[in-house]
Nucleic acid binder design. Sequence first.
DNA 1: CAAATATACATTGGAATCTTATGTATTAAA
DNA 2: TTTAATACATAAGATTCCAATGTATATTTG
Lengths: 121, 121
Amino acid sequence: MYICLMYSNELIKGTLKTIVLNLLSKEKRMYGYEITQHVKEATDGKIQLTEGALYPLLHRLEADGLLTTEKVNIGKRVRKYYSLTKNGAETSGNLVQEFREFSSTMNRLLDTFTLKPSYHG
Amino acid sequence: MYICLMYSNELIKGTLKTIVLNLLSKEKRMYGYEITQHVKEATDGKIQLTEGALYPLLHRLEADGLLTTEKVNIGKRVRKYYSLTKNGAETSGNLVQEFREFSSTMNRLLDTFTLKPSYHG
DNA sequence: CAAATATACATTGGAATCTTATGTATTAAA
DNA sequence: TTTAATACATAAGATTCCAATGTATATTTG
């Protein structure tokens, strides 16, 4: 996904990594499905991550040394837990701060010109 | 561009349209180069639009009926002014609101989990 | 108990968006 | 006079995400 029912979904590109790393900086370890559910609940369904976006990202982050994994058997199923590496924790903090700054800059920019959106026809 | 010196530039994908339409909802008409300079100044250089992203977008928005153009001769040069159509003004308002909501949702989501970004090693 | 739903992983093809690089040309400043 | 600024434009490539599909186990519900 990134099924963002309330938003034109293009807005969110680039924030998935931030969301995931930030979550893992607070929770010791999480598995993919758990992440999707957590984000969904925390945002009242406003942000929903798709597997097609999430799983490849998790694999990439592991390959890049930002995450480590441990497999845990749950009955006959194998659950894959992800945790931050030291590098991942650092990156997490940076990305969150970057988003905050960007968000602030954007909102200021939009404020400057959104007093009355009008049609100058 | 989208040369965002302070940000990992991926964060901004999807906001270019919002920025441009919002600008044009406040200024009767603007031309491409003017838009890049305006955004640059208004954000203290934090957001810089590249021509490679801006011009194709302007063309697309015109093709989609959100913008109209008028060419003005400046000496030997032709300057291309863009203005919002009625449809464009409506879209502008929607996109700005969507960004605000998304921004708010994201910041709340990040707040929930950023008390202390840490390495659980 | 059977069927539907939830849990849980994964990959692939394609769309959309942006960057980098390149190109042309005029005008102003150093 | 040469450099920088103004002003447009396009093309190739990277990145990121979505939709679709696939597999399989576990739980809930009718």
